[in-house]
Nucleic acid binder design. Structure first.
Lengths: 189, 189
DNA sequence: CACCTAACGCAAAATATTTGCTTTATGAGC
DNA sequence: GCTCATAAAGCAAATATTTTGCGTTAGGTG
């Protein structure tokens, strides 16, 4: 089963997709994860369960789809005047979002997806952000690491701790990751 | 539902646990992920499905349990005479294992678990390895980064790419992560 | 405007999951 | 060793979910 972003966009499929996504988001507010079921979502969305099964395969993939949608970067990250500042500002709000119960469920849902493509898209989102912040810095004439180094130095440890070791996903550590990744301008090490 | 490592160890519970784990491992050889089912596993293990449901809750948690078991470090990592060498040697075999289809399923199964405790245990395994390699280096009198720095500098990027961006989980990149994490002895940067 | 077809609805069939109750086997206390 | 209390397993009925075949609907194309 391939991931379908927008099948027959604008038509009935799109309406069904939106209705189902909306139903999931609504239900997630009141129901706990284990209380969610495909028939329940289908009912709320006004579609038949078989529609959901045929389109998403199972509950896990549907939830992953919804979570990925929510994770998609929508607004331009705030500008602070320096790359370190931009990284810290964006990272702090990201940490804040992802350490919350809702955020943890989102991450968990995405990771539970069997679709490699879906997880990779998640990675692309982060790269997009890093590319954006880096280009700003380049325009200002700052010395900047490559996007790859930003991924390894900042995104990777942050994500690792969000997934595996939640208590250590903190703004203080974020500062450290940023400091160690950016070319040092004042201190020798 | 809490994770139960060994309930009434040595008794019937232990036998059932082993029988079920064994059944899963056997079935995983021939069957694809989607073909696995609780009733099927129960049948192969010679227990009733309700036993599995009551003990593990659902298929996802059972698979995560089995995968975590397989991931547990059993043998001492090979010695090479230097921390960089030890990290590279261990890391390469780990990458090799985890980039394989079987390894990817293991990671995926673990991540799909709703149990935070399970994912954290995974993290502790890596810390155990890092602590081990580091202590060897300390004994040899090498200058070594902290375990936390090893986690951020080596484990995190490696894991991140194994999970999100498989094609970039390579031995060559591993060398880079190691080089950037260890205190540089010859080159200034 | 008519046709083609992807996607949906419906309902029956097949599976999987939950649950109440009974039985078994282990570990503790004597 | 024996007995008791109880955690865990078995069994089977009751539910719930998932799959499937087939008829219907509604976008898109020529």
């Amino acid at each position: 089963m391939a991931i379908k972003e927008a099948v027959r966009p604008g038509g009935r499929s799109a309406r069904v997709q939106e209705a189902v996504h909306h139903a999931v988001r609504e239900l997630q507010i009141t129901k706990s994860r284990e209380e969610l079921s495909v028939p329940q979502i289908a009912n709320k969305a006004g579609v038949t369960p078989s529609t959901i099964y045929r389109r998403w395969g199972n509950l896990a993939e549907l939830l992953a789809d919804v979570s990925l949608e929510r994770l998609r970067p929508d607004v331009e990250p705030p500008q602070t005047g320096s790359l370190a500042g931009d990284l810290q500002a964006w990272g702090e709000q990201y940490l804040d979002e992802m350490t919350s119960p809702a955020g943890q469920w989102m991450l968990s849902d995405i990771m539970a997806s069997a679709e490699r493509e879906r997880r990779e898209r998640c990675c692309r989102y982060s790269e997009t952000i890093m590319t954006c912040l880096r280009e700003r810095a380049v325009k200002r004439g700052e010395a900047t690491p490559s996007v790859e180094d930003l991924m390894d130095g900042v995104i990777a440890p942050m994500t690792y701790r969000l997934l595996y070791d939640l208590d250590t996903a903190t703004p203080a550590r974020l500062s450290r990751w940023i400091a160690q990744t950016l070319p040092s301008t004042d201190s020798p090490d």
